[in-house]
């Protein structure tokens, strides 16, 4: 099953009247269960592409389908609902709600999706256990280390069982050892069948990912499967 179908995607930002073309025609198909790394030099459009795939921003041109559904022309509420139920985001800077506990951060998207209180807390406990933080459930986000925060963020991204997990430099703020733990968690997600797209500068990360898409100046420069080597 196809999770992402992007055809000739373009994104032009206008900055002080100047046009900046961040994506210049990207076509990309991602099947369910794939684990994909997007690499490329700074400014090549990696984050921009990820934001389009996650419905955080809309393309200036081209065509994008998520889970078989056209994204262009969706209303703001429909797009929001798509992000809530079909996509899970993991940010470089974790972006947890600092006033909430780990458990509450994971429950947040569940509550928004209308999941009942009881089921919510069960699912949050389950997810925190999955990322290895069962004993930190009641800590405020500010009381957690960077690696722990990122694991809470991963649990939050998984909350509504999305079709697609998107991560933008998930290890960028972490030291090597902590980053490695996150990568192990990603491997486990992949083994469990989650579709995973990771933007990274990290060669270690890229090396262990089955499919690597290399961007250069807003275009796909290489799209290679590890097995093809």
């Amino acid at each position: 099953m196809t999770v992402v179908l992007g055809q000739d995607l373009t994104k032009v930002y206008s900055l002080n009247g100047r046009q900046v073309a961040a994506l210049r025609g990207v076509s990309l198909t991602i099947a369910a269960g794939e684990y994909l790394a997007i690499t490329g030099p700074s400014g090549s459009g990696k984050s921009t592409l990820l934001q389009l795939l996650g419905g955080l921003d809309s393309p200036t041109g081209g065509r994008l389908e998520l889970m078989g559904r056209r994204v262009e022309g969706l209303s703001d509420d429909e797009l929001t609902d798509l992000r809530l139920r079909q996509v899970g985001f993991i940010f470089q800077r974790f972006h947890l709600m600092s006033v909430l506990t780990a458990r509450e951060n994971v429950e947040l998207p569940l509550a928004e999706a209308g999941v009942g209180r009881r089921e919510r807390s069960e699912r949050a406990a389950e997810l925190l256990a999955y990322v290895g933080l069962a004993d930190r459930a009641d800590h405020r986000a500010t009381q957690l280390s960077g690696g722990e925060m990122q694991r809470v963020a991963i649990a939050r991204a998984l909350a509504n069982r999305p079709a697609l997990i998107l991560a933008d430099e998930p290890t960028g703020e972490l030291d090597a050892a902590t980053g490695a733990q996150i990568l192990e968690l990603f491997d486990r997600l992949h083994q469990d069948g989650v579709t995973l797209v990771v933007v990274t500068h990290d060669e270690h990360l890229a090396a262990r990912v089955p499919r690597r898409v290399h961007l250069l100046d807003g275009r796909i420069d290489r799209d290679e499967l590890a097995t093809a080597r």
């Binding site: 955080l56 809530l84 972006h95 709600m97 947040l108 998207p109 999706a113 991204a157």
Partner: peptide, 16 residues
């Protein structure tokens, strides 16, 4: 404002 953008990003509706 960043926090609100995150909320919106993870699927919290405008109305909320």
């Amino acid at each position: 404002i960043g926090e609100f953008a995150v909320l919106r990003g993870i699927g919290v509706r405008r109305a909320r």
